[in-house]
Design a protein around this nucleic acid. Structure first.
Lengths: 343, 343
DNA sequence: TACTATCTTCAAAGCGCTTTGAGAGTCAAT
DNA sequence: ATTGACTCTCAAAGCGCTTTGAAGATAGTA
């Protein structure tokens, strides 16, 4: 059933039927209801492709999921997708998902989407401190929303977590528990959120008049293995930390394994705080104290922001920072070591 | 740069340029290279929407991710997406992702994709024993590939894991370690793979002449919580099991927690085997023995199968069953209890 | 030279929708 | 009656591509 046969059946022109269906003023109420009814009865669905051609829009949104070639892709991405999905579905926008590894193959994927007119808007995730994807999109004045933040002089729309605040909170928690030697296992410096976390960590230490010990600040590739390796090296320090802040839950898992393998007890000898609150976090042994962020709502909000951006809202009005919440579970505890050193 | 201006610039008709670009025979080699070159120089990309309208295809594939309203969506789905992504990208097919919870809202999402001509093919996951999505697609003769299997009299394309074989293997492993009281925490019966797993379990027990004890076969909703609850009830049995086979790794996590909370040691007092090999599985304490399946390659293969199906390969030729591998880690061990009972 | 066979190229007709610019019909005011 | 102001409806022109059916150019044969 296409527009033509529907309008013939109704004895109306295609124009009138199309207008009735799309809510134009110039159609009388009577004809409109008549048309709507007939459309429903005949199961008429406008051909989206024809519609797009006429409108000159793609009626689609693009997301590129960053998948490290070897690793598992970040599981939280699917939650973000689910959150966005509901909003786009309601707006009958298609959500086009592509996978690309970080690196030289990444930008071409974005170009294909943008220059090939396959999408009307993009969502950018796993943001880097300097991010050429964002520069590219800004250059072309293409609508997009970033999950995270980057460094650029031009305004852009984003929804970010307050990483600095999160790590102030986490650090303060450990300080409040009596810890003085607190390590930070951070993400690689090129990722945007790493800087904020480092800031928060130093700020909280400063406020408590604790000197920053550079040997306690280390970078990890976000894998469990690397978290394990790095935590071991921290524990082998002459004066090892009694608390460890981790870049994410996966890293925290590795750190826990390291602590246990040294015969120490997590949450007693060494406190650990993660970040993300992945599904497994409540179920480790002991359950992981971590920073929780509402991922699905964030996805939904990002989708709404993108819709606003696409209909002309200036990027300055589309900038939000959400605060993760500290979720106390079992891996943090009072510092039990005199002098603030484990063992 | 559109086809018209490109052909004008070349002094050729749109027909010839279009044909040259799309590899038709009727164009001389000389013109073809001339056209190709000009297209590249001018950065010409055919408008996909116009192309689709003319061709009458959507050039897109649909996937619906099943997201339980409350829970985290299954993390392995993103791996499947990543696997499919590369294949579709190469074929320049768009991958359209929608989220829908299992239930009454699910089929309408499929109908919208199919009847709204938004996709040329679909991938169906989280297959149910009786699956109305599959019946619907078969009724309409719409191309699709199933991840899993279902019960229907009509042939359809699928890639499934050999669940029966997997659970034969897992069960035999425990039997080989001396276990006699082996529990099965299975998935809800309406999910397709549950039956196969139950079969495999019983088959292996039968082969070892061990009677099936119905009180050792229980159903779980696949969450950690439920796995924990059910494992506790198993351990409270008059004659508790010494080995537990779990429907998935998440359930296994819950079971491990239950065992520990009873003061028992996982892998010594009670052996546990999971299924999926999720990223965390190697990093639990002790590391989880589980069944591994190559998810990303499976996604890629499913994508290829769908392309074949869309170009006419009969479904009978597109049916594959892959064998998961048993990954021995630390949660299985010899039965230490005389009489085959824990404690 | 005329005529057919073969190779290249083209103009024009869709694909199914939206939208422009204009034409009918209605009614109150002149 | 005439005019103007609305209200409702329509035919036709795109949107940018593919493809059909036909024609022009070139070469081969009689």
């Amino acid at each position: 059933m296409d527009l033509k046969s529907l309008s013939q059946r109704l004895g109306l022109s295609m124009t009138t039927v199309s207008r009735a269906l799309n809510g134009y003023e110039e159609v009388s109420e009577a004809t409109r209801t008549r048309v709507m009814e007939a459309a429903r009865e005949n199961g008429y669905r406008p051909n989206p492709v024809a519609r797009r051609l006429a409108l000159g829009r793609a009626e689609a949104i693009g997301v590129v999921i960053p998948n490290p070639p070897g690793d598992f892709a970040d599981p939280f991405f699917i939650e973000l997708l689910a959150g966005m999905g509901s909003v786009f579905e309601a707006a009958s926008l298609d959500l086009i998902v592509t996978a690309a590894p970080e690196g030289p193959a990444e930008l071409p994927v974005y170009r294909r989407l943008v220059e090939g007119r396959r999408v009307d808007g993009l969502i950018v995730g796993r943001t880097r401190r300097h991010d050429e994807r964002i520069e590219y999109l800004l250059d072309r004045d293409f609508p997009f929303v970033v999950h995270g933040r980057t460094t650029t002089s031009r305004p852009y729309a984003y929804l970010d977590m307050d990483n600095a605040q999160a790590f102030v909170t986490a650090t303060e928690r450990l300080i409040g528990l009596g810890h003085r030697r607190i390590a930070l296992i951070n993400a690689p410096a090129h990722l945007a959120f790493a800087a904020g976390r480092h800031d928060g960590y130093e700020r909280a230490l400063g406020a408590a008049a604790i000197a920053v010990d550079p040997s306690l600040v280390v970078v990890c590739d976000l894998s469990e293995q690397d978290g394990h390796r790095i935590a071991l090296s921290l524990l082998d320090l002459p004066r090892p930390p009694t608390g460890i802040l981790c870049a994410n839950d996966t890293t925290a898992l590795g750190a826990m394994r390291a602590v246990k393998s040294r015969g120490l007890v997590v949450g007693r000898d060494v406190s650990i705080i993660g970040y993300d609150d992945l599904p497994f976090a409540g179920h480790t042994d002991p359950p992981l104290t971590t920073m929780h962020q509402p991922i699905r709502p964030a996805g939904a909000r990002i989708a709404e922001m993108l819709r606003a951006r696409m209909s002309g809202t200036p990027p300055e009005e589309l900038q939000e920072v959400w605060r993760p919440k500290l979720l106390l579970r079992g891996t943090d505890g009072p510092c039990t070591t005199a002098g603030g050193t484990a063992r």
